[in-house]
Design a protein around this nucleic acid. Structure first.
Lengths: 237, 237
DNA sequence: ATGGGAGATTGGTACTGTCCAATGCGACTC
DNA sequence: GAGTCGCATTGGACAGTACCAATCTCCCAT
């Protein structure tokens, strides 16, 4: 059990306390929370900042802090396919299509900050949800950074593998979302009619120092998948 | 000129200073910045928090704070169509298609927290970028909250109008993104072949108290538009 | 009843100070 | 020359205090 920071533990406790409160229910005041939990108001504010960021509460100066109503969605987080599916209450699965070493090429080389001729490990998988096709996923990893990676390792969570064996922690990802017309092979694998549309997500996973670690292209079935997230007004300039 | 908070002014100054620095350039230490700008270290941290959140810098404990490389995109912000297009260096435009009062119906009533029979003002516009069709936009506003709104008001920025005349400030929005097959009328208006795919964005704009103010459905041409954003790992639970 | 103003309440901003934890560099050892 | 150990540096975490700004409430005048 890792030792948690006070503000983080407080955040979780507040979140748990809010679990079954109706929207717009006021939380105790910051000063009250501070006294009640034996921490400084700074720490309370730090915890509330995180909750606000995640869309769990909203704050109004002079009025208080309130439980936010979940209109459509919470803020987006970086998740693996498996986590994502479980959050949608579906059972994740996978079928390996291809795995091997190829040259990066212009596009992938660009994403991963590599020479186009550099070798990358490419993994193609058909991802399932509740047993039916959900998306086609193609992962690219620089061979140099994952020596000894083999097909045998591809059962479990890729992120977990990268973290535990290679010390590669992906903390940020940059994504580009597009709508595309599915080609023949894609349609066949996803079991949808040719010509229907799909949701195309290009992702570059970055480590703590914003260095690219992994590039993934995912093609979702439009009829089974959508992306939900909250955005906020940010100060100009 | 509004009086800005110190942390906000500092944020802008730091951002300006970083403008033409190559990626991974270290910023001064927090203690140095504090001394240099005559503020406390807390204030510096608050400014850096905002920059980090926006994807402008990254921090490594024990090492320093560094300029983040812009791999594909900065974090997503809530923007109007016009702002969005200008950020993409295109000239925004609009052609009014329909405007009038209709009943909310199940779906929109649900989004806006209204009775399905309540009246909403509906505005349909074809949005242009550099003179060519970019998307179809349908805005829904509760009639009760925008009394006296007329066609004549629909030239300029809708958000600005809502803010100035009705005191409705949209600070948050929840979005659902899907890929869809375009129908005949849609394709015709967007000037693309029938059956091609489009990017469908459903947005609910919320005020400071997370009350729904506006619901917008936007249908983008897949060949001209994509959505870019950064996601971060968030603590479990 | 109704409108308005005073004051208490609540989140927002800011400063000072202290200690902790991760990093990285350099000296030292083998 | 390669590894390793220790210390200075840097961001992270907290406490405590003070004052400001938006909001809400409640009482009073009309």
């Amino acid at each position: 059990m890792a030792k948690l920071a006070k503000h983080e533990e407080l955040r979780q406790r507040l979140l748990a306390g809010m679990a079954d409160a109706p929207p717009h229910t006021p939380l105790p005041t910051e000063r009250e929370i501070a006294a009640e939990h034996g921490v400084s108001r700074n720490t309370v504010r730090q915890a509330l900042d995180a909750l606000e960021q995640a869309g769990g509460v909203y704050r109004v100066q002079g009025a208080g802090t309130f439980v936010a109503p979940a209109v459509v969605s919470k803020s987006l987080a970086l998740t693996s396919f498996s986590e994502d599916m479980r959050a949608r209450e579906m059972e994740p699965g996978a079928r390996l299509l291809t795995a091997g070493t190829v040259r990066a090429g212009r596009r992938i080389g660009d994403f991963l900050d590599l020479d186009p001729r550099a070798e990358v490990f490419r993994i193609g998988r058909l991802r399932l949800a509740d047993g039916a096709p959900m998306c086609l996923e193609t992962v690219h990893l620089p061979t140099a950074r994952v020596p000894g990676l083999a097909e045998a390792d591809l059962d479990g969570s890729l992120y977990q593998l990268l973290s535990e064996r290679y010390g590669l922690e992906i903390v940020t990802a940059e994504q580009v979302v597009r709508a595309v017309d599915l080609g023949e092979t894609e349609s066949t694998l996803l079991e949808v009619p040719v010509g229907t549309s799909g949701l195309h997500v290009q992702r570059v996973g970055l480590d703590r120092r914003e260095r690219p670690v992994e590039a993934t292209t995912t093609l979702y079935r439009a009829d089974r998948y959508d992306i939900r997230f909250a955005v906020r007004r940010t100060p100009a300039s």
